[in-house]
Simulated scan of single mutants.
Amino acid sequence: MSPSVAALLSVLGISLVSLAGVFTLSLGRARLERVIFLLVSFAVGAMLGGALLHLIPESYDALGEGPQTGLLVLAGVVAFFVLEKFLHWRHQHGAPEALDGATGHVHHGHSHGLDRPPQGEAAPFALVNLVGSVAHNVIDGAIVAAAYLVSIQTGVVTTLAVMLHEIPQEIGNFGVLVYGGYPPRKALLYNFVAGLGGLVGAGLVLALGGSVEGLADWLLPITAGAFLYIAGSDLIPELNRRHSYPATKAVGQLVMMLLGIAVMALPLLWG
């Protein structure tokens, strides 16, 4: 299988994760919160492992031992900080309004800090969340495609890291759309369409990859910086803020985080 076909299939698989929200409608709020906190912990380990065990070492192999790789990793961190500020991305992994929406238990008149619209209308924050999700998925698709241009193994590792992060993210996005006034079926459709933005990002990178020398090599450390930023700025603080106590939850976090790192370490055995 060619890297281009593998990249497009992987991005399509990631896009299908946007349908995960439908399964939350049968869960109670307490059960969903437990599931999400475990998924977020696992995603933290996967993103840190992907960045530190694969992307950064491979960047040094491709770009040499100078400061270039470190500067590009920092550029990735700064770029995602700016993007998050500009797009107002909200990582709704444990927010009450996202949990209420994802389980279908939306109570009008109780806003949890967000202004809900009248019944039958959609709130502006839901549209902003949808636009941010499209941009997010375009970037994810570009990241995955660039990784496949380096090697199949790098592409698979990057796909796993992105996909594991996307599961709780897409559940949160679905919950925000429902909480913002969209019917569950329409929210699911819009979330899936937003997820297809990844194919746009992948297509752009694959089209440019052959004409821009070293494009994939430059994107690898930037991707590593993005993973480090998302894990350190969005996911770990979310876990510390909502799920650190009692001690059993902290232990559960650690176990799932180590499991995520272990999953990313496995490809090293056959690399």
Rank of each mutant, 00 (worst) to 15 (best):
G155F: 08
G155W: 06
V156E: 00
V156Y: 08
V156R: 00
V157Y: 09
V157C: 12
T158R: 07
T158S: 09
T158A: 13
T158D: 06
T159W: 08
T159Y: 08
T159R: 03
T159E: 00
L160C: 11
L160Q: 00
L160E: 00
A161M: 14
A161D: 12
A161T: 13
A161H: 12
V162C: 13
V162R: 13
V162D: 09
V162T: 15
M163P: 02
L164S: 11
H165N: 06
E166N: 15
E166D: 14
I167C: 09
I167E: 08
I167T: 10
P168I: 07
P168Q: 06
P168F: 09
P168H: 08
P168T: 09
Q169A: 15
E170C: 09
E170H: 11
E170Y: 10
E170S: 11
I171P: 10
I171A: 11
I171S: 09
G172M: 13
G172N: 13
N173P: 02
N173I: 10
N173F: 13
N173L: 11
F174S: 01
G175S: 09
V176C: 00
L177S: 03
L177V: 07
L177G: 00
V178Y: 01
V178S: 08
V178E: 00
Y179S: 04
G180M: 04
G180K: 02
G180C: 03
G180T: 00
G181S: 03
G181T: 01
G181M: 03
G181E: 01
Y182T: 03
Y182K: 02
Y182R: 05
Y182H: 12
P183C: 04
P184Q: 04
P184T: 01
P184V: 01
R185K: 14
R185Q: 12
R185D: 09
R185G: 10
R185N: 07
R185W: 14
K186C: 01
K186Q: 14
A187E: 04
L188K: 02
L188C: 05
L189C: 00
L189M: 10
Y190K: 15
Y190T: 14
Y190M: 15
Y190P: 12
N191V: 04
N191S: 11
N191G: 03
N191L: 02
F192M: 04
F192K: 01
F192D: 03
F192C: 05
F192A: 10
V193F: 14
V193R: 06
V193D: 04
A194R: 02
A194N: 07
A194E: 02
A194L: 04
G195F: 02
G195K: 05
G195P: 04
L196C: 13
L196R: 06
G197E: 08
G197D: 05
G198H: 12
G198C: 12
L199E: 07
L199V: 04
V200I: 14
G201C: 06
G201T: 12
G201H: 01
G201L: 08
G201V: 13
G201M: 05
